[in-house]
Design a protein around this nucleic acid. Structure first.
Length: 570
RNA sequence: UGGGGUGUAGCCAAGCGGUAAGGCACGGGACUUUGACUCCCGCAUUCGCAGGUUCAAAUCCUGCCAUCCCAGCCA
C-alpha cells in the first residue's frame, strides 16, 4: 500500500543538492577545531522527542538540523525518547515517531535510546550532588515552592530544608526511591541561587515522586528526574557533543551547564538554540493539534490538512520537498513565521520534475465532436512526462463524446479568455484541434453540452502550418473515463496566525479547507497505476491516491497542491 | 533599575569595517500541445531609532525603542 510505512526513504528520494550554511554549523566547526570544546571528537547530535504525540513539520526542522548536522560532519545522530514523565507518555507514539523520521530519510542505526535507560545513572548523579552539598531533599508543598520562588522581579526565599545535613538528604532520597512516601511529599532540589534573575536557577526541582507505571521501566521507579536534570546527563552519557534545541530553552542553558559541570560526566555537551519553525494559516502546538483531532474538526492525526508529518505524507508531500523547504529557510535565532506558499512552492518544484501527468475533470460537462464518427475510438500514446520518453507512456482514447471542465467553456467569454467559446479554436491536449460551434441548454438555460468540430489534419494536437492555437484544454473520453472522488484541500485556517488571534479558534477555521468532489473523472490507467509521489492532473494541480481509502474500484485522490495560475479575468 | 533572546523588503534570509546576495510573494514581458514549467525585467539610496568612532558603518561604541521567552513537582 503506497503511503504506508515502508522503511527509510532512500537517499536519492530525498537528495536536494542544497548548500547548507548557518550559525550552528559555524559553531560546531569551531568546537571540533583546534582548541575547541569538542576538539578531536566526532560530531554527535541527537533528536530527543517526548513520546506523547505525533511529529509535525516543526519537528522536521529539528530532525533535519540534528541529523543533517551530524551527516555534514560525518558524525552521528542518536534517536532518544525523552521519557521522564510517565504520566504523559506512551509507547504507542514511539512507532509513529520512528516511522516519520524514516520517512524523512534519516536513520539512527543501532543508536535508539530512552532517557529512561539512564534512570539508574541519573539517580547516581543526584546522589553525587547531594554528597557535594549541591542538592537537598525538600519538604515544601508545591504551593510553598511557588510562593518562595519569588517573582520575575523579586528574588526568592530559600527553603527551610536547604541546609539539611547531606546524610539526611541522602537517606530521604533513598527512601523516596524505595517508595516510602506518597506523591509530592518530597522533592530533590538543586542548590543553586534563589536570588538569580534566571528562574531556572532558583533551586530547581530535579526529582519528584510519582507513583506511576512507566512504559519502559514499569514499576521499577516511583521517582522520576526532571527534564533539566535528565537531559544534560543523557546527552553527555551518549557522548553528544552538540545538543541542539529551540529558543525557549535558552535560559535553561545555565542549568544545563551547571549539571554538566557538577556531575562526573564524560563529555562537555554544548547546547545551542535555534528558532523553531512556524508557518502561517496553520497551528503547530501539540495542544491545538490534539484538540482539532479530539473534537473531530479534522479526520485524525493524519488528516491531510494538518501539518503533522503523517498528514503531509497523506496529502502528498514528499520528504524531498520538506527537506528542501527547511534547508532553504535556513536556521537562525529570529522568531519567524514562514509563508505556507513557500512550502507549496517547494512541493511543486519537486513534483513538477517527476510526477507523471494525467488528465482529470473535476466539474464535468459533455463535449460532443459533431463531425467525429459515431463509433470510432482512437488511441493516442502520450509521455508520462511530456518531452521525456524515458518517463514511460500511457494510452488515452478519443471518441465522439468527451468530458471537459465546465469552466473551460464560456458562451460569452470575458476579454482574454482563450479557452472554448463559440467560433473559437482550442487544442484538446494530445488529440485534435477543434473549433466550437455552440452549446445545448436545458429548459432552465443551463448549459448541458458543448458542441464542436474537429480538424482531422491536427491529429496528435499538432497545429497546421502557420496556425496559432492559444488555448489547450484537458479532456477525457466519455467511454473510458473513470469516476473518482477527489478531495480538495486548502488552508485549515482563514487567518495567518490563529495562535495570536483573540477570537476562538473554532471561528477561524476555513469552512472550505476540505471540498469533496464526488463525481470527478480520471484517466482509466489510474485504476491500476500507483505513483508513490502522485500525479499532476494537468492544469489543475498535483494529486495522489489516498493511501488508506482508495481501491481499484473506488478511486480517491487527495489534492496535494494547486498548480500556479496566472489567469485573472479582466 | 529581574534574567535571557531578537530586530536587514509583504515573508524567510545572506552579510562578520570597503559601499545591501539569494529564495518566496508580487508586477510586467517572452516562450509554451498544461494560463503550468522555463526564461528575461522590475521590486530596500538603506539595514528598529538617535548619537558617536572611522577616509569608509547593516557591520564597532553609547543610549533609546519594539518584540519574544521565563515564576510546572511539563518537555
Amino acid at each position: 500500500m503506497p503511503g504506508l510505512v515502508t522503511g527509510v526513504t532512500p537517499r536519492e528520494e530525498t537528495f536536494t543538492g542544497n548548500t547548507i550554511s548557518h550559525f550552528i554549523l559555524e559553531e560546531v566547526e569551531k568546537d571540533i577545531g583546534p582548541g575547541g570544546r569538542s576538539e578531536g571528537l566526532p560530531v554527535h547530535t541527537r533528536f530527543p522527542p517526548e513520546p506523547n504525540g505525533y511529529l509535525h513539520i516543526g519537528h522536521a526542522k529539528a530532525i533535519i538540523i540534528d541529523f543533517g548536522t551530524a551527516e555534514l560532519f560525518g558524525g552521528f545522530c542518536n534517536l532518544r525518547m525523552d521519557d521522564t514523565n510517565p504520566v504523559k507518555e506512551d509507547e504507542a507514539f514511539v512507532r509513529a515517531i520512528k516511522d516519520d523520521i524514516h520517512w524523512l530519510g534519516y536513520d539512527w542505526d543501532d543508536r535508539f535510546f530512552h532517557a529512561s535507560d539512564y534512570f539508574e545513572e541519573i539517580f547516581g548523579f543526584a546522589k553525587e550532588l547531594i554528597q557535594k552539598g549541591l542538592a537537598f531533599v525538600c519538604e515544601q508543598t508545591p504551593e510553598e515552592v511557588r510562593e518562595s520562588r519569588g517573582t520575575l522581579t523579586s528574588p526568592g526565599v530559600e527553603s527551610p530544608w536547604r541546609n539539611r545535613p547531606r546524610e539526611e538528604s541522602l537517606d530521604l532520597f533513598e527512601r523516596m526511591r524505595a517508595g516510602e512516601f506518597e506523591d509530592g511529599r518530597y522533592t530533590l532540589r538543586a542548590k543553586i541561587d534563589m536570588s538569580s534573575g534566571n528562574m531556572n536557577l532558583r533551586d530547581p526541582v530535579i526529582y519528584r515522586i510519582q507513583h506511576a507505571r512507566h512504559h519502559q521501566t514499569g514499576d521499577q521507579w516511583c521517582i522520576y528526574p526532571m527534564y533539566d536534570f535528565a537531559h544534560p546527563i543523557s546527552d553527555s552519557l551518549e557522548h553528544i557533543t552538540h545538543s541542539l534545541c529551540s529558543l525557549e530553552f535558552e535560559d535553561h542553558r545555565p542549568l544545563f551547564d551547571w549539571v554538566i559541570d557538577h556531575c562526573s560526566l564524560p563529555v562537555q555537551t554544548r547546547q545551542i538554540e535555534f528558532a523553531r519553525l512556524d508557518i502561517n494559516y496553520t497551528v503547530m502546538s501539540k495542544r491545538k493539534l490534539r484538540s482539532l483531532v479530539e473534537e473531530g474538526l479534522v479526520d485524525g492525526w493524519d488528516d491531510p490538512r494538518l501539518p503533522t508529518l503523517c498528514g503531509l505524507r497523506r496529502r502528498g508531500y514528499t520528504p524531498r520537498a520538506i527537506r528542501d523547504f527547511n534547508e532553504r529557510n535556513g536556521v537562525s535565532k529570529v522568531p519567524s513565521m514562514v509563508d505556507i506558499r513557500f512550502l507549496e512552492h517547494c512541493l511543486r518544484e519537486d513534483l513538477n520534475e517527476r510526477a507523471p501527468r494525467a488528465m482529470a475533470v473535476l466539474d464535468p460537462i459533455r463535449l460532443t465532436i459533431t463531425n467525429y464518427p459515431q463509433d470510432l475510438v482512437e488511441t493516442f500514446s502520450v509521455d508520462n512526462l511530456p518531452g521525456d520518453p524515458s518517463s514511460g507512456k500511457h494510452d488515452i482514447t478519443f471518441s465522439r463524446h468527451l468530458i471537459i471542465e465546465r469552466d473551460d467553456f464560456e458562451e460569452d467569454p470575458p476579454p482574454k479568455y482563450y479557452r472554448l467559446f463559440p467560433a473559437n479554436q482550442v487544442r484538446l491536449r494530445g488529440s485534435y484541434i477543434i473549433h466550437c460551434t455552440g452549446c445545448v441548454k436545458d429548459s432552465d438555460g443551463r448549459i448541458t453540452e458543448v458542441l464542436a468540430e474537429y480538424d482531422p489534419e491536427t491529429r496528435g494536437g499538432a497545429a497546421r502550418e502557420g496556425q496559432k492555437i492559444r488555448g489547450t484544454i484537458h479532456w477525457l473520453d466519455e467511454t473510458t473515463a473513470v469516476k473518482a472522488q477527489v478531495r480538495l484541500y486548502d488552508n485549515l485556517f482563514t487567518v495567518e496566525s490563529p495562535d495570536d488571534d483573540q477570537r476562538d479558534y473554532h471561528d477561524l477555521l476555513n469552512p472550505d479547507s476540505l471540498v469533496v468532489i464526488e463525481n470527478a473523472y480520471v484517466e482509466p490507467w489510474l485504476k491500476e497505476d500507483r505513483s508513490h509521489i502522485g500525479y499532476q492532473f494537468m492544469r489543475l494541480g498535483y494529486f495522489i491516491h489516498d493511501c488508506y481509502e482508495t481501491t481499484d474500484e473506488n478511486l480517491i485522490f487527495n489534492r496535494s497542491v494547486k498548480l500556479k495560475d496566472s489567469y485573472k479575468p479582466a
